[in-house]
């Protein structure tokens, strides 16, 4: 497989400046992500995971280094990159359909064709009959699915997922990680998933990047190869190698309960 690099970070550092001082959030990080690859990023709390995603999304500029998305230097938010936040942030005054159209509206691309496409996405992923409902009337899992469709509607090549399931209860979380990874693979997207949950990272990703404490540097990168019957997160969790990966990453994260 000789696929092209969709995302690459070259010696990226970032410092936040405030009146109180500066926070060195990211230090000299380099890695790249191939087209269609699913990358998991784990690291201690507050180490700079969200910062890395915000950098790739073009929301903040690196203090040092360079970021390329699909071969082009990142200068600001681009339509190539879709970002899914921790909370679904569906707008309560919009119906599910209107929420899903938000990105297209901002790009000025709402027309018959794109609307039909969004409708098809909603149908495909089980929200067809809820398209005229308001978010309040949906369960947490359905809301998160609607948020994913809102991100997919603008057809980004790369998806950034920042702990997208952490607001969900455990059962829903398992089911959603399964669904989301199936959807993302089916739509042929490249994805970077930030999570606190080591199992989630291993079960969903092709590679897992382990970050150090702040300022974030790359501690290690694990190529995940699991022998499971089916290639979906829930059955991947049953693979014999799963434990081994879990233990290695757990040790590297070096979590201490204070």
């Amino acid at each position: 497989m000789n696929k092209k690099d969709m995302v690459s970070l070259k010696n990226v550092s970032l410092k936040y400046y405030t009146l109180e001082g500066e926070t060195h959030a990211v230090n000299d990080i380099s890695f790249s992500v191939k087209q269609g690859e699913f990358i998991g990023i784990v690291g201690p709390s507050g180490c700079g995971k969200t910062t890395i995603l915000s950098l790739i999304a073009g929301l903040i500029k690196p203090t040092k280094g360079e970021i390329l998305v699909d071969g082009k230097k990142v200068e600001g938010p681009s339509t190539d990159v879709g970002y899914m936040l921790q909370q679904d942030h569906l707008f309560e005054w919009r119906t599910i359909m209107q929420n899903a159209l938000l990105g297209l509206e901002i790009h000025g691309k709402t027309n018959r064709e794109t609307k039909e496409k969004v409708e098809r996405l909603l149908e495909t992923y089980g929200l067809g009959e809820f398209k005229n409902h308001y978010p309040d009337q949906l369960s947490g899992g359905m809301r998160q699915r609607a948020a994913l469709i809102r991100t997919l509607a603008v057809d980004p090549k790369i998806l950034l997922l920042d702990e997208p399931f952490s607001a969900l209860d455990y059962q829903t979380r398992l089911a959603m990680s399964d669904e989301v990874s199936t959807i993302i693979r089916k739509e042929g997207k490249t994805a970077l998933l930030v999570t606190h949950d080591i199992s989630e990272a291993i079960s969903m990703s092709d590679r897992v990047i382990v970050l150090s404490k702040r300022p974030a540097t790359i501690k290690s990168i694990h190529e995940i190869q699991l022998t499971s019957e089916r290639d979906n997160p829930i059955s991947r969790r049953q693979a014999p190698e799963f434990r081994q990966y879990f233990n290695t990453i757990w040790k590297e994260l070096d979590v201490h309960v204070q």
């Binding site: 999304a57 929301l59 600001g76 938010p77 681009s78 339509t79 990159v81 879709g82 970002y83 936040l85 921790q86 909370q87 942030h89 707008f91 938000l102 990105g103 901002i106 790009h107 603008v154």
Partner: peptide, 12 residues
């Protein structure tokens, strides 16, 4: 919620 604004910013 600033994340609502962030969401829109990610769409440019």
């Amino acid at each position: 919620n600033p994340d609502k604004i962030k969401l829109l910013q990610t769409f440019g």
